[in-house]
């Protein structure tokens, strides 16, 4: 196998590996459940895309012809990742998992849980955002 193919495959592998690592790092480091959702569900999507792309390139060159079935896994994960994230966020909302105290939009938690529009608590919303804004430097 030509050396430049090895270099390309190694670059994609490293890119994917680093993103997988960062996604899991986010899972450990981020402060509350809602922020933790951001790390793994997406960084891992790109991470796995990198690794599968490396595999695709490698087997295409090695066996001759195009090896595309890795793309199927990438496509599947791209479709399912947002569904998983959405379901977990929804479950957390309905189980009353608290947001980080300094995050904004606390007044939206209650209407979101009951699936109302935010105007249902319009008085609270207005005073809430104003007081939040005034606290900012």
């Amino acid at each position: 196998m030509a050396s430049w193919v090895e270099i390309i495959v190694a670059c994609f592998l490293l890119l994917g590996g680093i993103f997988m690592f960062v996604g899991s790092l986010g899972l450990v480091r981020l402060p509350d459940l809602y922020t933790r959702l951001h790390g793994p569900t997406k960084a891992t999507t790109l991470g796995i895309a990198g690794i599968l792309l490396a595999s695709s390139i490698m087997f295409s060159i090695k066996n001759g012809g195009l090896s595309v079935h890795e793309w199927l896994i990438t496509l599947f994960l791209l479709i399912t990742a947002p569904v998983t994230a959405n379901m977990l966020a929804k479950t957390a909302l309905h189980h009353d998992v608290k947001m980080l105290s300094r995050s904004r939009g606390h007044e939206l938690m209650e209407p979101a849980r009951h699936r109302y529009g935010p105007e249902g608590a319009s008085e609270n919303t207005k005073s809430g955002t104003e007081s939040n804004n005034s606290k900012l430097p």
Partner: peptide
């Protein structure tokens, strides 16, 4: 909603009835 969830930095959580 899926697009919002896929682009990093935002997750769609719930939709009003």
């Amino acid at each position: 909603a899926s697009t919002i969830s896929l682009t990093p930095g935002t997750v769609s959580a719930e939709i009003s009835e």
